[in-house]
Design a protein around this nucleic acid. Structure first.
Lengths: 243, 243
DNA sequence: TAGTGGCACTTGTATTATACTTGTCTACAC
DNA sequence: GTGTAGACAAGTATAATACAAGTGCCACTA
């Protein structure tokens, strides 16, 4: 069965666009240009583009050209897949095992970040295909966590459970040797390197509403950071010296 | 993929301005001067400058000229300070020590990223106040590195020496135990954890033009990543599993 | 010395022309 | 219904030009 030509072209363009070949806001090649590259008449190219316009993937202005539509929802999709999406696409089933679940008074680093208040502390082991790959402790102000049950945090990621908008986060990544207790939980030998990550998640107004510490066995995990513009530095951007 | 000309020029000017090429309060080249250097009409140059004025990056006075706006608040938007700026503000003097400098044929991982071509390989030790904090190896296609001398790469960061525009980079961060040779160079005991980072820097069109591998002693360094919008995931965004 | 005018330069703002784009139509073939 | 080929209208970005108005500077003058 032969496919209709303009739909073929639409498919080709769609994949190239969703692959990020044309960044948002940039202009596609003109109809006549595409006409020569696809060896099709301008009318056919137009039909293909109009299919994509119906999908609100692209748009056009007379005298200007075709450009990929700026869809804010599509943006995060263009970035790196989160680890859960990656797992899902790999057919790996993520599991969570709650180790600790307690309301208590913030102290030390937690009090410094969230304030000297009552907090919920959840310690959780994340597994991929039965293998542990992350040990996470999350602290959340008690007044924002009153509706949460132990079953809730076992079933869903924490960020989905917050019923206030989360606007941003700052993340610190370092490396250390694994501690004895963590080694047992993660199933790695003593002396293994681990990635340590602290994340402060903010709500509107820049107020910190979540503090989380993550421990990843280094042999199974790595971070990938996309930098839209290379910083003029000898060091990868974001690195800093600690005393 | 076509781009609107004046936006291209605005981008070029923006990077040059944010890179500090024109100190705050100083005057930019005149419109007609820019017109000849960019080989564009004055109208187009004006449009580009007006884009930057909307970003309150520059401003103009009739009969005087264009000057970069003195807006210190804008700085954090220019993303995190590089490690060199941080050092400068701390009064620490960065030094570089060239360990290896050789033209050779790409092989293995290097060939996979840059292609099977002739490359320049530079291995460099970075020091802060005389203390080593990073071991960096950079591979660069030979045809882009012909003008570089050993003294050049000792004096300046690599990214400043490239005379083609660098548009972005992808960075992978992991942790391992230090290798014997690296331990000696970095002055850390065997069995210490280190942060390992691989960075692929791209030029226009997404073509990889630099491959660099970095080793940082974990006790002195950590990464800080600002996430404009928190990803809905239990894991810090960018983490991925390795086999 | 102090003031003034001229001059070269700048930005601000038009106008015109041109090349290129999309939008739309007709005619024709399969 | 699908595709090709062509033509024309309408819209856009840019180039080239011209001129008004503001600024800085310097030589000249009283």
């Amino acid at each position: 069965m032969r496919r209709i030509r303009y739909q073929e072209i639409a498919d080709a363009l769609r994949t190239r666009i969703t692959a990020g070949e044309f960044a948002a806001g940039r202009v596609l090649p003109s109809e006549s240009e595409l006409s020569t590259t696809f060896d099709a008449s301008r009318v056919t190219i137009r039909k293909a583009l109009e299919v994509l316009r119906d999908e609100s993937l692209v748009d056009a202005r007379q005298g200007f050209g075709w450009y990929v539509a700026t869809d804010p929802i599509r943006q995060p999709l263009g970035r790196l897949a989160t680890i859960e999406e990656q797992m899902a696409s790999d057919g790996i089933k993520p599991e969570r095992q709650i180790l600790e679940f307690a309301f208590e008074r913030a102290k030390g680093r937690v009090a410094k970040v969230l304030g000297n208040i009552q907090v919920l502390r959840v310690k959780r082991l994340n597994l991929a295909d039965g293998e542990p790959f992350a040990l996470v402790t999350v602290w959340c102000p008690a007044n924002l966590a009153e509706h949460l049950s132990r079953a809730d945090v076992e079933r869903s990621p924490f960020y989905e459970l917050m019923n206030i908008p989360l606007t941003g986060a700052t993340q610190t990544i370092g490396a250390t040797l694994v501690e004895a207790e963590d080694a047992a939980l993660l199933g790695v030998p003593m002396g293994s390197p681990v990635l340590r990550c602290e994340r402060i998640t903010e709500s509107e107004g820049g107020k910190a509403v979540l503090l989380s510490q993550h421990v990843f066995p280094a042999h199974r995990t790595e971070f990938v950071v996309d930098l839209p513009h290379a910083a003029p530095s000898m060091a990868p951007s974001g690195l800093r010296l600690v005393e």
